[in-house]
Amino acid sequence: MKKLINLNYSFTFLLVALFLVSCSKDSTPEVIEEQELITTVTLEITAANQPTQSIRWKVDETNNNTVSLKANTDYEVSIGFLDESDPGDVEDITEEVREEADEHQVFYEFSNVSVSYSSSDTDTLDGDGNPVFIKSIWNASTTGSGIIRAYLIHEPTTKNSSTRAGFGGETDVEIDIPITVIE
């Protein structure tokens, strides 16, 4: 029986030792600033003889800026992606999208209004010469109000499609912005 007790003592001792070793961990974990976050989408809309419109859509904010277009007028629309999670260090993700033009695609869909768009002369092209639509020319044909749905697609399975499903790939951005088209 004495041996048994001895063993118990040694066990307790080992346990205590084990726990003491462990208690040395006191460092606080590092803060992680998320790297590939997109928090903000901007649309810069310009046309000859029209005031420039700057639309900002930011996550966690109320976004009710409306785009307003004149029918049958060409507008140049420049889309931008920002990481504003750290207000002191705003990152322009658009640059990254341009650099990886092969793996990215900007795509727009419209509801209730009819807007056609094409690549602008200043647009970025991918390795095969396909436009990424970072800069595009819009032209609205019907009047009314509806929604612009802007997408940034990562690794699309094809670069030529007219529907979101057709492009495949993963959606990195999908936001809705109200639009009105006037005469």
Binding site: S22, K25, P29, E30, V31, I32, E33, E34, Q35, E36
Partner: peptide, 12 residues
Amino acid sequence: DNFSNPNTGIKR
């Protein structure tokens, strides 16, 4: 002891 490496650039 669980340690989550912060170099992932994604929240733990």
